[in-house]
Write a protein that binds this DNA or RNA. Sequence first.
DNA 1: CACTAAAATGAAATTTAATTTCGTTAATGA
DNA 2: TCATTAACGAAATTAAATTTCATTTTAGTG
Lengths: 154, 154
Amino acid sequence: MSFDLDRIDRNILNILQKDSRISNQDLAERIGLSPPACLRRVRRLRESGVIVAEVALINPRMVGRYINIIVEVEMVRDQLDIYDAFKRKMDAAPEVTQCYQVTGEVDFLLMLLVEDMESYEAFTRKYLATDANLAKFRTLISLRRDKFSTAVPL
Amino acid sequence: MSFDLDRIDRNILNILQKDSRISNQDLAERIGLSPPACLRRVRRLRESGVIVAEVALINPRMVGRYINIIVEVEMVRDQLDIYDAFKRKMDAAPEVTQCYQVTGEVDFLLMLLVEDMESYEAFTRKYLATDANLAKFRTLISLRRDKFSTAVPL
DNA sequence: CACTAAAATGAAATTTAATTTCGTTAATGA
DNA sequence: TCATTAACGAAATTAAATTTCATTTTAGTG
């Protein structure tokens, strides 16, 4: 389930977490290894599941999607099957970009990305207001994503 | 500030948001263009700022970082300079992976990724409990990140 | 401390992909 | 309809990824 990283692996990950488009040759030079040795390490990190994916990040504002909505959800009862069913629904909802099960009064925290408030209205009707296992939810609106880093600090 | 995407651009973005490691040749084939034409479009998306970055996503659990902390922060007064100063601090804090300015009772929502609760304690002392402009904060703990997608729905 | 086995490395060769060039086609607007 | 611009694709070129294999380093053991 976990993986031992040495100094070089950490170095590689820190670079790839910022820019995975770097050529293997440049990466090799920056970490002080030959290209084949570097490539083998990167491969191992991919195959072992440390690197889950390499993706393009796009600016939501450039494509007309820029309202962030945070939703705190409280279920009627703390039951495993109720939780699992809710998670599955959130997983299928394209507006939901993040879903966290949390401890305390609140049960889930959702992060959504929507075009406008009308889209959010539609979402609440489809997924929240009609869920019999959902007790209440609170909405926080954000027009400013001041920081968004996908990098895990190492 | 925004950018007109046609059907092909959207198609490209949807693929690259899931997997930016795909070769230009394969991408070209999937969208039905020649490699040079495909490459030109991808370049344009990069240069125009639609594609902000291409990064490796790593599994926090594989590297010993797996507590997600959500913090709701309320400032003493709704003043621009107070907000800006706080944002700058959060930007500099490596534990903070996301920061959203929100409307309503709460002023900011933070997402942190920490090794253990002790690290979070240290964070609150350094950044929150000692900030004179901060009125109160509420902490939500999550051991389960059930969904985490960086893709903007298009 | 020396010896062995396993793991990691790098130079060179090979394969594969990215990128450029340039003539052609399609879209846009007067 | 015609002129202009933008986008396209085939072929050639350049650059990078990947494989091969001999060597070095590391880790464990008598």
